[in-house]
């Protein structure tokens, strides 16, 4: 057996940043270099606890480190949140297909994120910005539950500054204490998709977030006039092997880990119950 696909590479945790009360960004350094494409995901192991899939939130152009932005939701993520710099974790991958960047070239790119769904989109955004002349326009719409729940608080304002090439719209579902940053609206993320001012015939939309947000955003985008083949969705499914074998991630006839995790709505639109 040449290579054991179940064997993670060890990686050292370098830095942990609090993003929100339940989301942290982890900077890790794999002990063997791992190269990936933006949109591909990794299986991250907490030794003795378990493994879970996460998409790096950093750009693939940074070769020796990887960042992950992770929400605490259960077993593995809880333990990850307790780790301190210096801890050893495991990494397998990359898995899945990256974002089809060549299909975005020359187009107006709309990125819509909800909650921790901004993690893979941040990697995409950083990648697009590295070669921003290739894209006609880049627009980011991001929605979080409350001002506290906004991730990458520092960066988001930074992104606002590269205004000429990046248009940012922020919104929070509720803001009881009036704490939202300047320019941030109140309302569901779908409200940011009103009057986009984009040339929809020459635009692609990339969406990532919780299932309910993906559903309503997709409906909204269709309503705006996006064609199903121009809407790219990150499908979160239960994953175990990442190899296209174990069966866990099946969505109709697709294996999300190898055929996705990003699909166009065109590929999914006839599948019953895709949003559950």
């Amino acid at each position: 057996m040449k290579e054991n696909p179940y064997q993670p590479v060890e990686a050292k945790l370098l830095e942990v940043t609090d993003e929100t009360p339940n989301i942290k960004t982890f900077v890790v350094k794999p002990l063997e270099e791992i190269s990936f494409q933006t949109g591909q995901f990794m299986e991250l192991t907490c030794p003795g606890v378990g493994e879970a899939p996460f998409t790096p939130s950093s750009s693939p152009s940074v070769k020796d480190k990887m960042e992950f932005t992770i929400m605490k939701v259960g077993g593995v993520t809880q333990t990850l949140h307790e780790l301190k710099p210096g801890a050893i974790v495991g990494l397998r991958g990359p898995f899945g297909k990256g974002y089809p960047l060549q299909d975005f070239e020359g187009k107006e790119v709309l990125i819509v994120g909800g909650g921790v769904g901004l993690a893979p989109l941040r990697s995409l955004l950083l990648t697009l910005l590295e070669e921003k002349e290739k894209y006609k326009k880049i627009m980011l719409c991001y929605g979080a539950r409350s001002p506290q729940d906004i991730v990458y608080k520092g960066c988001v304002s930074g992104w606002c500054e590269v205004k000429s090439s990046l248009d940012v719209r922020l919104t929070v579902d509720t803001d009881e204490k009036n704490e939202r940053p300047k320019g941030c609206g109140v309302g569901l993320v779908t409200t940011t998709c009103d009057s986009l001012g984009l040339d929809l015939k020459n635009s692609v939309a990339i969406v990532c977030g919780p299932p309910i947000m993906m559903k309503f955003t997709t409906l909204k985008l269709l309503d705006c006039g996006y064609a199903p083949q121009n809407i790219y969705l990150s499908m979160e499914k239960n994953m175990s092997c990442g190899l296209g074998i174990c069966g866990h991630c099946m969505l109709d006839k697709y294996f999300v880990c190898k055929d996705g995790p990003v699909f166009t709505y065109e590929q999914l639109k006839d599948i019953p119950d895709i949003w559950t």
Binding site: Y6, C46, P47, E51, G90, C241, C246, H248
Partner: peptide, 17 residues
């Protein structure tokens, strides 16, 4: 039926998959 699950368990100083 060919599906499987991977899980990790502590054994002495090792994490076994």
């Amino acid at each position: 039926c060919y599906c499987f699950l991977l899980y990790d368990a502590k054994k002495d100083n090792l994490s076994e998959r």
